[in-house]
């Protein structure tokens, strides 16, 4: 990073903290602190909903996924618009009209206090950990590619976020989310422009897409019905819909956003904004990853994008082997570049279809040869470093940024990555503090707490959860595989929490005992499915369906049983 990049990055941090603190005026009472006194416009709430979901992992991981695997990950989001429509018609009016502050407060009104407390504790456990990962993932990447100290990087992201979230509550979180979303979108647009301009003379955008498409990277839809396949149109539409129903309908970090809107219809509009925009936005981020792949076909790419163990391998007894692989890679990469240029030329002209077929076959072979060398290099790094979790997909986009983006824009891109991490974690910290204070502290420890006291304790809870996230980050940074564990950890609970809300809204006879026992059974069943050897291969998107169905079924049966007993 050059001085201008530092100026952009530091300028961004100062601007975001200053505007967050400015938004913190007039948030002295609990309603203003937790719900912004229901004064926010739908578009700001809608952008905040999207910003909370769009973390740095999305920005860097999704482009990496586009690079390695094409755009088929977009199917993950196919259920989202369906879920938004269902939520707008069912759960959102219930929440808004009942005047609750947290999603779990509604569960006490409908069932009992034990169901509310269990749901809140599940949320705190799962989101407290994931908040740490939201900060850790970009911090690890930035510290490796920029050579920064990992703890300092985590604190540089965490501390400003804690500051404005603590002072400003939900209002500061929402307005900074809007600004951070603008930074992310601006930076991504700049990256796409640099990617397109970086294609060689004579190779246009459509040529580059044809070349990437010849390897299947633009095939978005998979119609096979295969439970073990992670992303298909069916897992996306059905599993994804259940996931979105649970995430947007029952997760405090999302519910709190749309409870701040001026009216019920504005709450709904803020969710429908995601329904309209989310799939195209994710498709564009994935396409940026595919474009990065096309870019690196025509420009020199490193053999491995994650340099963390390179020095270790070079100093080991297998340094000569590594050097030989590097030389082989450079030769294969050059061969592939020639094949890609030939294919781009052949795709551009309709003169000779036979020529295009031959060029395509040659390019496919050349790409397979490059992938083969890379796979051997990864195996060697794993062998020498004993780091089984080593992967470099998440480093592709940052490598492009640092190597090929012009000065100034590098700072903007790093600011965008930091921005995504801050906007996602601020929403989580705010929601964690709200659930801690309203569902646990005020409900169980101090029901007579005054408004001022509740706001004060919320500020302390924000600091607690922020520091907890930073500690989890430092801990997770040492163990790369932990990040994946925490990421899938959330999906073990989503379906069961959704099941409780389905019982609340859809099953008239459901009671507190049914909901409580149903929820525990659902969580246990999903854990068994996730870890039992016979069912382990089932894709995690289906856990949401399984959890919701089990909770609804068991909850309904137990409710009937306990009612008969009582009668």
């Amino acid at each position: 990073m050059r001085p201008l990049d530092w100026i952009v990055l530091v300028g961004y941090l100062v601007w975001i903290v200053w505007s967050g603190l400015r938004a913190s005026r007039r948030t002295a009472d609990a309603d203003a602190y937790f719900r912004a006194s229901r004064t926010l416009p739908w578009w700001a709430v809608g952008l905040s909903v999207m910003a909370t979901q769009l973390s740095a992992i999305t920005l860097v991981g999704t482009t990496g996924q586009g690079y390695a695997d094409g755009i088929r990950f977009v199917q993950f989001y196919f259920g989202l618009p369906i879920a938004m429509v269902i939520l707008c018609l069912t759960i959102v009016p219930f929440f808004y009209r009942s005047g609750v502050y947290t999603a779990y407060e509604y569960l006490e009104r409908r069932f009992d206090v034990k169901t509310r407390t269990l749901a809140a504790i599940v949320f705190l456990a799962q989101r407290g950990l994931s908040c740490g990962v939201i900060i850790a993932a970009p911090a690890i990447i930035l510290s490796i590619v920029l050579g920064w100290n990992i703890v300092a990087t985590i604190l540089a992201i965490g501390v400003p976020t804690i500051a404005y979230t603590m002072f400003g509550g939900v209002k500061a979180v929402t307005w900074t989310d809007v600004k951070q979303m603008a930074v992310v979108l601006g930076a991504m647009t700049a990256a796409v422009v640099v990617l397109i301009l970086g294609l060689p003379h004579g190779v246009g955008l459509t040529d580059a897409l044809h070349v990437a498409g010849s390897l299947g990277k633009l095939r978005a839809i998979d119609f096979r019905f295969d439970l073990s396949e992670k992303y298909t149109i069916w897992s996306g539409l059905i599993g994804g819909a259940f996931l979105s129903l649970s995430y947007f309908g029952c997760d405090q970090s999302q519910v709190q956003r749309y409870l701040t809107a001026k009216s019920l219809d504005e709450s709904r509009q803020s969710l429908l904004l995601s329904g309209f925009v989310k799939i195209p936005l994710q498709a564009l981020i994935l396409l940026t990853g595919v474009l990065t792949f096309a870019f690196f076909l025509f420009n020199r790419a490193p053999m491995l994008f994650n340099p963390v163990h390179e020095a270790e391998v070079r100093a080991s007894g297998r340094a000569a082997e590594y050097q030989a692989l590097l030389e082989e890679y450079q030769a294969r990469d050059a061969d592939r570049r020639v094949a890609a240029e030939r294919l781009a030329g052949a795709e551009g002209s309709d003169l000779n279809p036979m020529l295009a077929t031959l060029a395509r076959a040659a390019f496919t072979d050349a790409d397979a040869a490059v992938r083969d060398v890379r796979a051997r290099a990864v195996a060697l790094v794993k062998d020498v470093s004993h780091d089984e979790g080593y992967a470099d997909v998440n480093y592709v986009f940052p490598t492009f940024i640092l190597t090929y983006m012009p000065v100034g824009l590098v700072g903007l891109m790093i600011a965008a990555i930091v921005s995504a991490a801050m906007s996602a974690s601020s929403g989580e910290m705010n929601a964690l503090a709200t659930a801690t204070v309203l569902d646990l502290y005020k409900r169980h420890l101090n029901p007579r707490a005054t408004d001022a006291r509740v706001v004060l304790v919320s500020k302390l809870a924000t600091v607690f959860w922020g520091l907890f996230a930073c500690v989890v980050s430092v801990f997770a940074a040492d163990r790369g595989s932990l990040i994946e564990v925490v990421n899938t950890f959330g999906s073990l609970f989503y379906g069961s929490v959704l099941g409780v809300f389905i019982l609340a809204l859809g099953v008239k006879r459901a009671n507190g005992d049914g909901a409580f026992i149903g929820m525990i059974t659902g969580i246990v069943v999903v854990f068994v499915v996730a870890f039992h050897p016979a069912t382990r291969s089932i894709s995690y998107l289906w856990y949401n369906v399984i959890g919701a169905v089990v909770v609804t079924g068991v909850g309904w049966a137990v409710s009937l049983g306990t009612q008969r007993k009582a009668a």
Binding site: I71, V74, F78, P81, I82, M84, V85, C88, L89, T206, L209, H210, A212, G213, S214, G216, L218, R219, A220, I221, I233, D265, R268, Q269, L272, G275, F276, I279, P280, A283
Partner: peptide, 30 residues
């Protein structure tokens, strides 16, 4: 602005169009 059933239908219609476009992109650039 009051939301009508048409707005919800529009969300789903846009989704179908987006999925169809993605399908077309996959076939066109194959």
């Amino acid at each position: 602005m009051r939301l009508s059933p048409r707005t919800y239908a529009l969300v789903l219609v846009v989704e179908v169009l987006v999925i169809a476009t993605l399908y077309w992109i996959g076939r066109h650039f194959a």
